[in-house]
Amino acid sequence: MSTGTGDLVPISPRRFGTLSRFPAWLLILLLIGVFVLYSMLSSERYSATLRFLLLGVQLTVVVAVVSYAIALVLGLIIALGRVSRNPLLQNAATLYVEFMRGVPLIVILLYAQFVVIPGLSNSLDELLGTRFLWQRNAAIAGTVGLALGYAAYLAEVYRAGIESIERGQMEAGRSLGMSYRQTMRYIILPQALRRVLPPLGNDFIAILKDTSLLTVISVPELTYYAKQEASRTFENFRTYNTAAFLYLTMTLLLSLGVRYIERRSSGGRR
């Protein structure tokens, strides 16, 4: 530290004191949120719109959570395929990622509802004599479509994490007598997962917003109700304000959650 020259005084990170850490943006957003909520509840027509749109919130959350959970698992499996040295697995995983990443989600959803799910459900029903009729509930096609699409995005996130771990660790594990699988499971993955927590969290927020695409296959989620409200009242400003408010409330809560997990997981290292 002491070089003897004495003319370079490092700026103390405490210069702005605790003020620099104060999340002013959060306070401002909270104030705006409270103000908007207050003005909505004090206007009869706004609160009617709010009550109507709230009908779609539950399905929005359920679809987001379920499709994200599937994508988390499927994405990890695909990522392991991507880094695998088995050319068959590696090619299959890469094909999946390139295909799903290259097709817009909205097209995947249209495929799911109008082609894949009816075809699958009808042939299963024919084969087994059941009456699944999965096409009757478009939320199924919507959840499957979102999960399959996001699995490709998440696989790339996982892969980036795995490849960010130094090669030497795999070699060290192997030279200690651990198998590839064991080294992956006990050494590489725990570190990789910690590194990719922030981008994984971002994708949860993204999937929540992308549930709005399900309105094209008539899944009664938040945007579906918003479009219905707008088309029957012709009040676009009021309706989409309310929809944006509800989406923001959900995504901001998630964003805070992601920050919390991020801070906790990097806690011991900085």
């Binding site: 509802q113 109008f114 009729l133 309105t215 008539s218």
Partner: peptide
């Protein structure tokens, strides 16, 4: 539905 064509696609699929 956004358009009647999607409704017909769903009807044909027994959705």
């Amino acid at each position: 539905y956004d358009d009647i064509a999607s409704a017909f696609a769903d009807l044909k699929n027994n959705a």
